[in-house]
Structures are given as C-alpha cells and as structure tokens.
C-alpha cells in the first residue's frame, strides 16, 4: 500500500504519457502522478534541484514508472544512479518499456528494478495492465517508509 504517495512517471513520449494517465485513471488509481520527460529531469526531480526544488509541489515518489529509452540520460543509468543513493534505495521502480531485449530485462533487475513491464500494444491491454498493477503494487504490496508511518 502506498496510500496517497506520489507516483513518478519517467517517460519522454507524450502520447505514452497520455495513454498511461488514461489507463491509470480508468483503473481507478488516484495517486498524484508527476512526469519527468527525460533521465536528467528524473534525477533532478529526485534530488529536488532546478525546477523540482519545491518538495511540496514535487514530493519524493514512492513508486517510479521508468522508461528505458530516454534522451540525455538512459533509463538504466537513472536506475543505477538512484540505487547508489541510500535515500532512493527503497523506492519501487517498475520498468515500463517497449523493449523486449533480454539484455535490457536482465540488466534492469541487476541494477535493482522491482518489476519489468512491456508496454502492451493496445489500449485495452494497457488498461488491464493498469488494473493488475493497482491490485498488486498499490493494494497488496508493502513498501518501507510509506507503510511504516
């Protein structure tokens, strides 16, 4: 359970951002969703620097949807970076990508991803995925920090 904790979506494609937001909404997920459009912005967001300096507007997320193919800093590099930092080690990272490359899959888990999802081809399938996600990650799964408080 992550309650009302913020979800960060790291995604450069605005179509995918739209479809994801729509799928999450139709699945009944109401947590605030913040978006970082590239890898560098994801890092800035987590560090609370630059445009993300205000923690009230941009609170630390309890869960991150991370695309792999990102401009500037690649998704796997963002993952590696945040897992090196004690503050971010417990954040749930769900890789959400169109890549089915075995190397991406294994590298993501090696670097500390909690889950790896391939973007479904159709909106219906995406909505089903969002529902399954809600049930597992937001209702059954327990997370340190958020659930201990």
């Amino acid at each position: 359970m992550i309650g009302a904790a913020t979800i960060l979506l790291v995604e450069d494609n605005e179509d995918d951002v739209f479809l994801m937001k729509r799928a999450l909404k139709s699945a009944g997920i109401v947590n605030p969703l913040c978006v970082a459009e590239d890898g560098q912005k994801a890092i800035d967001y987590l560090q609370g620097t630059g445009e993300f300096a205000n923690r009230a507007t941009y609170p630390l997320p309890a869960l991150i949807f991370l695309d792999l193919k990102l401009p500037f800093v690649r998704g796997l590099d963002v993952l590696a970076w945040l897992r090196r930092d004690d503050r971010f080690k417990t954040i749930i990272v769900v890789v959400l990508t169109s890549s089915e490359e075995p190397s991406d899959l294994s590298n993501a888990y090696k670097l500390g991803a909690n889950s790896y999802l391939v973007k479904p081809p159709t909106p219906q399938q995406l909505e089903e995925l969002a529902k399954a996600f809600k049930l597992y990650w937001l209702e059954y799964n327990k997370i340190p920090g958020v659930d201990q408080n």
């Binding site: 494609n13 995918d16 193919k69 169109s98 890549s99 973007k119 081809p121 909106p123 995406l126």
Partner: peptide, 15 residues
C-alpha cells in the same frame, strides 16, 4: 522498430 514503430501504433490505437 520495436520501440519507435510500436509506440506510434500504440498512440494510434490509444487515441
């Protein structure tokens, strides 16, 4: 292809 061709397709189908 898997990334760049599929995501516009997803977008098409999505919209």
């Amino acid at each position: 292809i898997s990334h760049d061709m599929r995501s516009p397709l997803r977008a098409m189908q999505g919209y």
